[in-house]
Design a protein around this nucleic acid. Structure first.
Lengths: 193, 193
DNA sequence: GTCTATAGTGCGATAGAC
DNA sequence: GTCTATCGCACTATAGAC
C-alpha cells in the first residue's frame, strides 16, 4: 500500500486537459483540477509554476531537437543543418499522437494566455538551437536567423500536421522547400496540402 | 475647473514604466501605478486589460506596417514586398526614440510574463501581414512564410538598434541581405554590427 | 498545510460634458 | 435627458510566503 497514488504529475496533466477542453480554461479552477486528480491545490503548484504550465511541462522535444542538431553533419549552410535537425526530430510526433495533439491545440488556440505560453516555448527552442549552432561555429546573425527560420517551418508544419492526415516529415520537407523558394525571384506555387 | 486631468492613459503608462523600471514588475502593484497617476485601481483596469498591457497598448506601429505593405508595389516575390513594408516603416523608430525604447526593453527583458506578451504582439503582427499579402494575391504557405520572415528580421533588427547606435533602416537592410544569403549554398560572412 | 497579497471582474453610484 | 470617465465595494482565484 502506497501513501499516494503514483504519477501525480500525469494525473494532474490529464485532468487539466480534460477540464480545459470541456469547460474552458478560464472557467476551470486549479482546485477543480487538483480535486479530479485526488490532490490539493497546493500540490498542483508544487508541480507546475502556474495554471498554464500544466499543458506545456514535460515536453522533452526541445532536447530532442538539440540532440538531432548535435548529430547533424557539418555543413557550410546552417539552414541545412537546422532542417536536418528538425526533420530528424519529426518522429517525436508519430501519427498516433495526432488526436491528443489536436485536443491540446484546440484548447491552446481558444485562449490568448495559452497562446502566449506556447510562443514563449517556441522562442526558447529557437534560442537553444541558435546557441547550438554557434557552438558548431556558425557566426551571428546567421545562427539566429537559421534557428528562428527552422522553428518557423516547424510551427507551420505542425499546424498542417494537425489539419491534415499527412505525416509531419512530409509536410516539413515541403515547407523547407517552399521556404528556400522564398528568396528566389519567382513566386512559389501554392501548396497542395 | 475640470473633474479629471486629461490623458489618464498616458499618465498610467508613464507611471507604470517608471515603477516597473525602478522597483521591478512583480514588486509593483497596480494600486501603486494608479496612485502615482492620481487614479484608482479600477480605472487602470478600465484602460488596460491587465498589468502587462500597459506597456504594449497604443502601439500604432502594426497599422503602419500594414499601410506600408498596401503601398508597396506589386512584385513577383512576396519577401521583397514584406521587406519594402518593414524598411518603409523604420522611420517609426527614429534615433531620438532609442533611449525610451531601451528603458522599456530592459523592463520587458527582465520578466518572462512581459516577454510572453511581446511575443504575442509580434505574432499578431505577422498574422496581419500574412493576411494583407493574401489580399494582394499571394498564396499560402508563401504569404505566412514571407510575413513571419519579415517579422523575424524586424525583431532582430530592433534588438540591434537598441544595442548599437546605428539606424534601424541600415540594420534592417543588412539583415534582409543576410537572410537572403541563408538559403544560398554558401555560409554568409559574420555581421560587422 | 495555512495564510495572505493582489490581480482581475461585476455591478452600481457619481459627476461632469453635451 | 444621454454619454462617458471615474470611483467604490464586494468578490473570486491565482500564486507565493510562511
Amino acid at each position: 500500500m502506497v501513501r499516494w497514488e503514483p504519477a501525480a504529475r500525469e494525473r494532474l496533466q490529464s485532468a487539466a486537459l480534460e477540464l480545459y477542453a470541456s469547460h474552458g480554461f478560464d472557467e476551470t479552477t486549479v482546485a477543480e483540477i487538483a480535486h479530479h486528480a485526488g490532490l490539493t491545490e497546493r500540490t498542483f503548484f508544487r508541480h507546475f509554476g502556474d495554471k498554464r504550465e500544466v499543458l506545456f511541462a514535460g515536453q522533452e522535444f526541445q532536447q530532442r531537437f538539440i540532440d538531432e542538431l548535435a548529430e547533424a553533419r557539418d555543413d557550410t549552410n546552417p539552414l541545412e543543418m537546422i532542417a536536418a535537425a528538425i526533420t530528424g526530430a519529426s518522429e517525436f510526433f508519430p501519427d498516433e499522437r495526432r488526436p491528443h495533439s489536436r485536443l491540446r491545440q484546440t484548447v491552446i488556440a481558444a485562449n490568448p494566455e495559452l497562446r502566449e505560453r506556447e510562443l514563449l516555448k517556441m522562442a526558447s527552442l529557437a534560442t537553444a538551437l541558435a546557441a547550438a549552432l554557434r557552438g558548431r561555429g556558425v557566426p551571428e546573425p546567421a545562427a539566429t536567423l537559421a534557428a528562428e527560420s527552422g522553428v518557423l517551418v516547424f510551427r507551420l508544419s505542425f499546424e498542417q500536421w494537425l489539419a491534415t492526415e499527412r505525416s509531419l516529415l512530409d509536410i516539413e520537407r515541403e515547407l523547407f522547400r517552399q521556404f528556400g523558394a522564398l528568396t528566389a525571384g519567382r513566386a512559389p506555387e501554392p501548396s497542395t496540402g
